[in-house]
Design a binder for these strands. Sequence first.
DNA 1: ACTCTGCATTCTGCATGCAGTATTCGCTAG
DNA 2: CTAGCGAATACTGCATGCAGAATGCAGAGT
Lengths: 241, 241
Amino acid sequence: MQNAECKLGAFMISKGPALRDQVYSHIRDRIVSGTLEPGRVIVEVELAAELNVSRTPVSNALVMLKERGLLEDDGGKLKVPILKLEDVINLYWCRMAHDGLASRLAAERIGAKDLKQLETYLRAWETPEREDDLSALWVSDLNFHHLIYRVAGNRHLLRFSELTTELVSVYRRNTIRRMTDPTSGTNRSRNDVRAEHEAIYEAIASRNPDAAEEAARFHIRMVIQHLEQADLVIQPEQVGL
Amino acid sequence: MQNAECKLGAFMISKGPALRDQVYSHIRDRIVSGTLEPGRVIVEVELAAELNVSRTPVSNALVMLKERGLLEDDGGKLKVPILKLEDVINLYWCRMAHDGLASRLAAERIGAKDLKQLETYLRAWETPEREDDLSALWVSDLNFHHLIYRVAGNRHLLRFSELTTELVSVYRRNTIRRMTDPTSGTNRSRNDVRAEHEAIYEAIASRNPDAAEEAARFHIRMVIQHLEQADLVIQPEQVGL
DNA sequence: ACTCTGCATTCTGCATGCAGTATTCGCTAG
DNA sequence: CTAGCGAATACTGCATGCAGAATGCAGAGT
């Protein structure tokens, strides 16, 4: 029963990755998607029953989620954190520091091949495709930033970045409506983002660490500024999407 | 047997904090102290027997340690990470970014009371006490930096800082002999550190975020520079203390 | 009607059982 | 003597049992 594949919510449990990791991913996704609303008390037994696994892997997964800040301990109970705009902004301040450092290090170390790849990701912004094809831009954006981290070659920095990204994905989902970095049709035009990315690229390409750091920081500062403006647009209802 | 207090290695198990947290602390301390040498394979059963607890809380503690980078997964086995100077330096790069941001935010927000407290910690460096009373300086140093983080008021940033500090404490113990930030009788004089701290303090006191960030960054850059010099002094033997 | 107390239910943390997997040691055959 | 194979061992992951703590509900007393 457990060796073969079993229903796991709407998905299957494969026997490849450890069960606790699958459970981790599943719960994380439910938090991000809002199926587990902010403030919701997490009950181990419930999830175990739901996923047709025992409490053990669920318990382990919960420990992991807690360590990463995706769950928080509130009066002895584990809850999905209730997220404020302040938290998102605080996370973006961290990201500013991280991205700045990553760009600095990347500017010092990048090779011809990676530089070319970086340019490719940048180009995605130049093509004036259909306005609604945002997912492609989003992917390019992720690739762009991720490549910079990879080139920076600091595994601890990369880890911090990943933690931040994971948290932001939760927070964003539950606090802001349609307020992603690359999209944002309202205040922040696609061209703004493109120009900021281009500045980062140019600084890295010219191997100018100071300029690279500053460009990356500027980029994030703009995002933060945008977030603060978006304060007005926040939806107070945090349940569901 | 479990309700009362039991032997836990050389210590006692209290019934206050959850067992897994006590086990976590114990193992972390053993990693930091070098009783569990870098490269050592961690075996759950062994630790459980040693601490007179079952495998369950040990397992949970190991998950936590892994999440925080104090253990790493190597070919399906958990090992105490083998640490290179490069890692310490990479961590200090992160710390530069974090401390810089914290100082910036602190400069924007600090109140009179905290400022006064910060000055107190700073003063500890001015008194030319006995040269060997380094622990007092070490404590002042910790307090100084920690207060800045507290004032900064960004809980995510604080968490990143704590993760970094925890990792550095491991790395330092096992790679460098007598190479702490405040001490360092060799290349880096106590006065250097004092001056750098004073610069940070002055910038924060004058509510100058840019200067505060730069002062903090300079401080860490000096530490990194010192670490790189210390490369020559590294002890290759990583086992034991 | 309101409150206090006690019982039932629920949940979590820890212990332990069970089975699959990998590793190692020894035996046997070439 | 060596190489290869098989069996025993060791370890981990998952399931489950057990007990203590908290929560809530209900009944009784004021």
